[in-house]
């Protein structure tokens, strides 16, 4: 089963899905915690200070 979710904070929106087996044993609270952790982990990455970047032309 696929649980789609969307969380927005400070203008950043994560659209993600938790994909579980049909016989999973996660409680609703555990799934909600999973969603928040997904967002928190993503938010750290998406807002991290930039490294020096080498730019390619895409060719």
């Amino acid at each position: 089963m696929t649980i789609n979710f969307e969380i927005t904070q400070d203008g950043y929106t994560l659209k993600d899905a938790i994909v579980l087996t049909d016989n999973h044993t996660f409680t609703n609270a555990e799934i909600e915690a999973m969603k928040q952790k997904r967002f928190d982990d993503w938010y750290v990455i998406v807002t991290a200070p930039q490294e020096e970047i080498e730019v390619s032309n895409g060719d």
């Binding site: 659209k15 899905a17 998406v46 080498e54 390619s56």
Partner: peptide, 29 residues
């Protein structure tokens, strides 16, 4: 099939990529 998140780069050299309703994130180019 869900969000795709990674540090570093993504290169689309050939073929088609569809975000399909989910966020795609990389910290590089």
């Amino acid at each position: 099939g869900s969000a795709f998140t990674k540090t570093g780069i993504i290169t689309q050299t050939l073929g088609d990529v569809d975000l399909n309703g989910y966020s795609m994130t990389c910290t590089g180019a």
